[in-house]
């Protein structure tokens, strides 16, 4: 093969991949573009990426009896302020952070000691417990959602933060992952800690936890991405109470409230919800890809 055919091949590959990239990026481009443009520009598909940003009048603001000069603004300002005003977007975001962070912390508190015991302690029934973990790995979350919902409803817990968090407090996948990781930690390290008179409890949190940071980081990314983006479970257990809604659920409510002309604010809200994870991903691609492909093992 000559260098000439090689670079032609390279060129062709780029053409194919670029075509794919355009399709993959299309909705991201549209989302940002719509969030910047005026309703008229959105409907006529004009104005390029950012639109002409001509001053527009907020009709709703006029209806509320404000003087017209207070209701004039640029489309970008209109879209983003409307997103935060019409939908309690800030509240949704706070809920999202609260729920995802609590889930992750509880998962670690439950899984880490269990994984340590399974990897490093000898006790009667250890293999049975590990077998139970493997068995639970087979149970898909969507399959147990309905009975869990019934159990939570019977306990009077639907429409609470608890309902959003409880089903995820146990991550058998986390236990499995941490156990595999702890298997690779040398026994000498633990023996030395025991010699120093550390209790098993402080071995878990002061010796094992620091060694497990890389695995925990990957697991944390996996867990946080999954629960920030989760729509199914919040949709099942939160009915109507807006104060408890997570970002995807809030966005869905926003969509059903629309009077058809509010694409701009809607896309502004979408952009705000999607951006944190996308930016974090772009900053730490390798870690994210590692963390999310972990699910592969599930």
């Amino acid at each position: 093969m000559t260098a000439h055919t090689n670079s032609f091949g390279e060129f062709l590959k780029h053409v194919v991949l670029l075509f794919g990239a355009v399709i993959v990026l299309l909705p991201f481009y549209l989302m940002i573009s719509y969030s910047l443009k005026s309703p008229a520009e959105i409907e006529s598909n004009t104005g390029g990426l950012i639109g002409s940003q001509q001053i527009m009048t907020d009709r709703r603001c006029i209806k509320e009896g404000n003087p017209p000069e207070q209701c004039e603004m640029r489309p970008i300002v209109y879209n983003y302020t409307a997103a935060f005003k019409e939908a309690p977007l800030l509240r949704y975001m706070m809920n999202g952070v609260l729920v995802t962070v609590s889930i992750f912390l509880i998962q670690v508190v439950v899984a880490l000691p269990c994984a340590y015991a399974l990897a490093k302690l000898r006790f009667w029934g250890r293999d049975v417990v590990f077998g139970l973990v493997i068995f639970c790995l087979l149970i898909p979350v969507h399959a147990i959602a309905l009975p869990l919902y019934i159990m939570l409803a019977k306990a009077g817990l639907t429409n609470t933060y608890a309902a959003l968090v409880i089903p995820w407090t146990i991550s058998v996948f986390g236990i499995f992952l941490m156990r595999q990781f702890f298997k690779t930690v040398p026994d000498d390290l633990i023996d030395a800690a025991r010699m120093d008179g550390m209790s098993e409890f402080s071995i878990v949190w002061r010796v094992m936890l620091p060694t497990a940071i890389p695995a925990l980081l990957a697991f944390g990314i996996f867990s946080i991405v999954a629960h920030w983006n989760d729509y199914y479970w919040p949709r099942v257990v939160i009915t109507g109470d807006r104060d408890l809604m997570t970002p995807p659920l809030g966005l869905r409510m926003f969509k059903s409230d629309l009077d058809g002309n509010e694409y701009g604010p809607m896309m502004a809200a979408t952009t705000v919800i999607v951006t944190p994870l996308v930016v974090a991903f772009l900053l730490a691609q390798r870690r994210f890809i590692e963390g999310i492909t972990l699910t592969g093992m599930k």
């Binding site: 993959v24 990026l25 909705p27 991201f28 549209l30 989302m31 719509y34 991405v225 920030w228 983006n229 729509y231 970002p247 995807p248 966005l251 869905r252 969509k255 809607m266 896309m267 979408t270 919800i273 999607v274 994870l277 996308v278 991903f281 691609q285 994210f288 890809i289 999310i292």
Partner: peptide, 14 residues
């Protein structure tokens, strides 16, 4: 990999 990361519900609306 971007679509894997992005909130599916949000992107579905787009």
């Amino acid at each position: 990999f971007l679509p894997v990361m992005a909130t599916l519900l949000a992107m579905a609306i787009v």
